[in-house]
Nucleic acid binder design. Structure first.
Length: 828
RNA sequence: GCCCCCGUAUCCCAACGGCAGAGGAAGCCGCCUUAAAAGCGGCACAGUGUGGGUUCGAGUCCCACCGGGGGCACCA
């Protein structure tokens, strides 16, 4: 074999095919076909933020995503596979301040860099649908959707303590504050500020967002469903009304939320959140100073302190009592910071015997502890200081006395409360409304005008987009208020209602708003009369498979689900969930560590592509592990991938039969393997086991090599059939190599438009199979039998086998399990 | 503390409840070569984290524990 035919030049092949693919444009999604009812698939991978060039994570997710997209096209679906950029956001703004430029400079420069990298990476995107969320043509519709939310009562302003990042000088959503109380973006310690901010009412859909997770259980990766469930945090319980006996002699009803209404007789005090308005309202006059002092103390505590779950309980007696609605008992009312103002009703009934937090508080404050559930084998919590939460016998609990089962005690107490009108069974959620306003420049302006006379007025739809004023460099420096406020000419406007002077809202939207609906814009990215074409959304959507990173397991997916439900209720789409299936890719790490600049262990994609070529890098990422597992770059071998690709490619030079040759006369053994491989690959791709698809392709390559060198030879039609199958399988992962093979096999470009092999079921049936004969579960013999052998025949053959007879050794055969044609197990 | 996922050879990973090994990496030995690389052929390496259970049969199903990863967390 000469040098020239032994390897191909990776670089030259990449240069060769890019313009050809541009000309053929095989991946353009045909709207007309979709509307005409051709079966469609919508494949989507999370669009990137344009920060510099692509990194390994992008390389991985695009490679995985392309397997399924290309496969669907092969299987005859009209595939929508679009790509764009999530191009609003802080890094561009910070770069603009640093370099005294406009954020657009950084943003669109990076987009062009990423675009050319993505083109070369060979992903089957339909580039005609490219979009950028920072284009006015796009954010016009983001604003339109904000106004839709506003009109439906789902966008509102309220003043409340919000997360404030002193570094980024902006508010953050709960979702953007990490568990350790730091900003997810810059790592600064987040503080609280009392501010008026815009919210989307995600809580209005809490129940449905939670319930629909059941439908996604089997098609979404489990950990993400779990994360969503935990985030929404549904808990069943009851609202119970306590009457407060205020210092001035009046009474006031206060509702508490509890998951344990069955322990109501054990409530020995009540606690309200110290920072809730209620505390200040109900405190007895002689205790007001105590409360104020306590509040000062609480506010001084940093979020990090607040988050420590094991710190000692603190609180203050409010000097009033509450009446237990079932026992009539008077219990003291306290204020404490272990009760949260924004969860439930901001007030609890404290049952120290059966809740550890309440018990800790009672111990510190010397409050009584009364056991009402006697758990067998457990000490009285009043003595042990360990609250019991399990099932037990109810005591001192009026109508519940003698019950032994928590579930029925709960439902019985709820019935009692509902009969008396002092409580009701209810469900509470951890999910809060979505704080969406940001005091930053590079985002979609909130399309609201504030008028002294008319208040909050929506910008009329025909005046959208509210375009960003041109601000650059130091204009964008964070000052705690939105940079837009400095654009006086832009801010000063007229009220759409009365025509009088008014001011534009100067906040911009969280960039998660932009990405909550981009998948809909892709169905009609250039439409200028609506955010998206409803008929096309119906034809293409919902997304058949969405692939992305775990970092968006809660936020982006939840927000997109929320938008989908709102748009459905507004009648714009018909489906309930945006992503029918979701797969998250693992991380690419290096040497057991996350890649990072500070560790100096980053792997540069461009360098890897330079050294090994696009196909080898893609193959490495797909083959390394199941999609959701992490890939340690130190454990994998792009050089090995490159060798395999050359090996596969070499096959195409050894095929000497002509294209279109009748394969039916070809070598049966090789044909069997080809058809079996294709059949298995179909199953494997459809279940996202892409790494195994590659392994199966490797087997077919190995077998074909053997057939050429020491079997039927390169002229056998079966070899052509096998190599063509290899080219198509390989094109899912290594499009350049596959294209080159396809050409060498004598075909016109491109392989993406080739006809997927039709599996012949007759070739999947083996001529003979090896049946294993076990005696007491241990293998004692093997039989070559026909695949359609009857159970009786197989049993007879097995019992007649001399090796088996020896193993039975005259013992009585008690039972024979036959699984024709693979196995017989003889029990003696 | 509560909830999910995962533990198979030196490493990455396969294995409808039915012979633990498909594929790859690294290693070793040949062939080829003036030599090296590439290529071709071969060798070796685990009884599936631990302990129980179900079953004719368990890596696979159930229970407990250990280890790793992730989500939530003074959320009543």
């Amino acid at each position: 074999m000469s040098e020239e035919t032994n390897t191909y030049d990776v670089r030259a092949v990449e240069e060769k095919w890019l313009p050809v693919w541009d000309r053929i444009d095989p991946f353009r999604a045909d709207d007309a076909a979709a509307l005409a009812g051709k079966p469609t698939k919508y494949a989507l991978t999370m669009f990137p933020y344009p920060s510099g060039d692509l990194h390994m994570g992008h390389a991985e997710v695009f490679a995985l995503h392309d397997v399924i997209s290309r496969y669907w096209r092969f299987r005859g679906f009209e595939v929508l596979n679009p790509m764009g950029w999530d191009s609003f956001g802080l890094p561009a703004e910070n770069a603009a301040i640093r370099n005294d430029t406009h954020p657009a400079t950084y943003t669109y420069g990076n987009i062009e860099t990423q675009y050319s990298s993505m083109k070369r990476y060979g992903v089957s995107f339909d580039w005609s649908r490219r979009l950028h969320t920072s284009d006015p043509e796009y954010y016009r519709w983001t604003q339109w959707l904000f106004l839709l939310m506003h009109e439906r009562g789902l966008a509102y302003r309220k003043k409340s303590p919000v997360n404030w990042c002193p570094q980024d000088q902006t508010v953050l959503a709960n979702e953007q504050v990490l568990a350790d109380g730091t900003c997810e973006r810059c790592g600064a310690v987040v503080t609280k500020r009392e501010l008026t901010q815009w919210y989307f009412k995600t809580t209005a859909y809490a129940q449905e967002l939670y319930d629909c997770l059941d439908d996604l259980q089997d098609t979404w990766i489990g950990k993400v469903v779990n994360a969503q469930r935990n985030w929404i945090g549904r808990s069943e319980g009851a609202h119970v009304d306590f009457a407060l006996n205020l210092a001035d002699g009046s009474t006031k009803d206060v509702t508490v939320f509890t998951t344990r209404p069955d322990t109501l007789y054990g409530a020995t005090f009540m606690v309200v959140a110290a920072d809730a308005a209620l505390a200040a309202e109900i405190v007895a006059p002689d205790k007001r100073a105590d409360l104020d002092a306590y509040l000062d103390e609480v506010r001084k505590a940093s979020d990090i302190d607040r988050l420590a779950t094991d710190r000692p309980k603190t609180g203050v007696d409010l000097g009033i009592t509450a009446t237990n609605p079932v026992s009539g008992e008077q219990v003291p009312v306290w204020a404490a910071d272990y009760v949260l103002a924004d969860y439930g009703t901001g007030a609890i009934m404290a049952v120290p015997a059966h809740d550890q937090r309440d018990l800790d508080f009672a111990t510190v404050m010397g409050l009584p502890v009364r056991m009402v559930v006697d758990v067998e084998g457990a000490e009285d919590p009043a003595v042990s200081s360990v609250a019991t939460t399990g099932d037990g016998t109810y005591v001192s609990s009026g109508p519940l006395d003698g019950l032994t089962d928590k579930a029925s005690a709960i439902s019985q107490m709820i019935s009692v409360l509902e009969e008396r009108g002092t409580g009701t069974g209810t469900v509470n959620f951890r999910l809060r409304d979505w704080l969406l306003s940001r005091q930053r420049y590079w985002g979609a302006p909130i399309p609201i005008v504030h008028c002294d006379k008319d208040g909050e007025v929506a910008v009329p739809l025909d005046q959208l987009p509210v375009e960003l004023p041109e601000l650059t460099g130091s204009d964008l420096r964070p000052q705690g208020t939105s940079p837009l406020g400095g654009a006086t000419e832009w801010v000063e406007t007229t009220c759409p209602t009365c025509g009088g002077p008014a001011r534009r809202d100067t906040d911009t939207m969280d960039t998660f708003v932009d990405s909550s609906w981009y998948f809909l814009r892709f169905v009609s990215p250039n439409l200028d009369s609506a955010p998206f074409d409803e008929a096309l959304a119906q034809a293409w959507g919902p997304i058949d498979l969405y692939i992305g990173g775990d970092e968006h397991a809660v936020l982006h997916l939840l927000y997109s689900r929320f938008f989908t439900k709102v748009l459905r209720d507004a009648g714009l789409i018909t489906w309930d969930e945006p992503f029918s299936a979701y797969l998250s890719q693992g991380k690419v790490i290096n040497n057991g560590r996350k890649m990072s600049k500070s560790l100096g262990n980053g792997v540069n994609v461009a360098e890897q592509l330079e050294e090994f070529g696009v196909d080898a890098v893609r193959l490495t990422l797909v083959f390394a592990s199941p999609p959701e597992d992490n890939i340690d770059w130190a454990d994998v071998s792009p050089a090995g991938s490159q060798k395999f690709l050359q090996r596969a490619w070499r096959l195409s030079g050894d095929v000497t039969s002509a294209p279109g040759v009748d394969v039916s006369t070809g070598d049966v053994a090789l044909r069997r393997l080809t058809h079996k491989t294709v059949a298995e690959a179909e199953q494997l791709v459809e279940s996202y086991r892409f790494n195994v698809v590659v392994a199966r392709t490797m087997e077919l390559v190995n077998a074909t090599r053997k057939a050429i060198d020491s079997g039927c030879g390169g002229a056998d039609p079966a070899v052509r059939e096998a190599v063509e199958a290899v080219a198509m399988l390989l094109s899912l992962v290594a499009p350049y190599t596959a294209e080159e093979m396809w050409e060498r096999l004598g075909h016109e470009p491109c392989v993406a438009q080739a006809t997927w092999p039709v599996v012949d079921p007759a070739l999947l049936v083996e001529e003979s199979v090896t049946a294993v004969v076990q005696v007491k579960g241990k293998v004692k013999g093997r039989l070559e039998v026909a695949p359609d052998i009857s159970e009786a025949d197989l049993e007879a053959l097995a019992l007649a086998d001399p090796g088996v007879q020896r193993a039975i050794d005259g013992a009585t055969v008690r039972k024979v399990i036959v699984r024709a044609p693979k196995l017989v197990n003889i029990v003696v």
